[in-house]
């Protein structure tokens, strides 16, 4: 059982690097992406500063300026997610195939024992395709999702691919990268 769980951690480290590597080849290294990213970050910081400085003022001119900048940032954000979109789809498909392969390899196997009793809406995931009623048994998919959640984001941050805080704050959901594996 232990070797299975360690294998899953290893698999998720490999898939995280593979995913980031593929995204780097298809997106991050392209000139268009880099330009847009720099632009979005610059605009987000500028907008944040401007909002902090004139946030409460009722000056119409300032408000208009802020609105105009917000609109420009929104457009840039949209372009940025469009650049990402195509490759995200390609990577999404590749990872769905990989995930279904691993799913069939670990089908019906208890890969770990949970030290807690999962709440009912988690049980569907943590006990997926497992026999018996012992809900502390952990399925492949649950451990894999947890590993990916922690490992992928940390790798992104280490490699400097994670979007900056200012940009994600201003861009909201548009800028957030969906984890391709779960599609």
């Amino acid at each position: 059982m232990w070797s299975d769980s360690l294998l899953i951690v290893f698999i998720s480290i490999c898939t995280a690097f593979l995913g980031e590597g593929l995204t780097w080849i298809l997106v991050y290294r392209t000139e268009k992406y880099q330009k847009l990213k720099v632009e979005v970050e610059r605009q987000s910081k500028k907008l944040e500063k401007r909002k902090e400085a004139h946030g409460d003022s009722l000056d119409k001119q300032h408000k208009k300026k802020i609105e105009r900048e917000e609109e420009r940032l929104k457009n840039n954000n949209r372009d940025l997610s469009l650049v990402k979109m195509k490759s995200m789809f390609a990577i999404g498909f590749a990872f769905t195939a990989l995930l279904s392969m691993f799913n069939s390899i670990f089908d019906g196997r208890v890969v770990a024992k949970l030290p807690f009793y999962p709440i009912s809406w988690i049980q569907g995931l943590s006990h997926r395709n497992l026999p018996g009623d012992d809900y502390t048994d952990c399925s492949f998919i649950f451990l894999y999702i947890l590993c990916t959640m922690s490992i992928r984001q940390n790798i992104q941050k280490l490699l400097g691919f994670a979007p900056s805080r200012a940009a994600s704050k201003q861009g909201g959901a548009l800028f957030a990268t969906p984890p391709a594996q779960f599609k």
Binding site: M1, W2, S5, L6, V9, R109, V110, A112, K113, L114, P115, C138, L143, L146, C147, M149, S150, Q153, N154
Partner: peptide, 25 residues
Amino acid sequence: FMTSFAGFLVTWIIVYTGLHIADNL
């Protein structure tokens, strides 16, 4: 927080499974 929570769960589950569960599966 969420990333740290996921990292915590993975370490907790794996160490617990490895040390306290008899490997009968």
